[in-house]
């Protein structure tokens, strides 16, 4: 049951590169900490897809297990990150990272 045929690996690599770049762009472009965080998730997502594509082409389950770990870590990161965001919001009433300028002097 080989589902995918005729799509070269390069296509996947390019797709993942573009997704990753979009994520990075978002991190730089947006000022809302929450959205930045989402863009980071997008980047991780691109990595996951790349790993899976490689896994399929190498016939190697290792990469899929790696993806598994990335997902686990992403989940842990999200829990901590959102807790931090909530803490910041409690004190500043904003999630705009430009509003956080206490440390610039």
């Amino acid at each position: 049951m080989d589902i995918i045929k005729g799509v070269p690996l390069t296509s996947y690599i390019l797709l993942c590169s573009i997704l990753f770049a979009i994520g990075a762009l978002g991190v730089l472009y947006r000022r809302n900490a929450l959205v930045i965080f989402m863009c980071i998730e997008l980047m991780l997502n691109a990595v996951n897809l790349l790993m899976v594509a490689f896994s399929r082409y190498f016939n190697d389950s290792n990469a899929q297990v790696f993806v598994f770990f990335i997902m686990a870590v992403a989940a842990a990161e999200v829990s901590v990150g959102l807790a931090i965001l909530m803490m910041v919001y409690r004190n500043t009433k904003t999630t705009d990272i430009d509003a956080l300028s206490k440390l610039k002097y």
Binding site: I13, S17, A21, I22, L25, L28, Y29
Partner: peptide, 16 residues
């Protein structure tokens, strides 16, 4: 910045 990153990635990996 983002565009350049994307371009570099795409250009670098295009002919993998």
């Amino acid at each position: 910045c983002g565009g350049v990153l994307g371009l570099v990635l795409v250009a670098g990996l295009r002919e993998t």
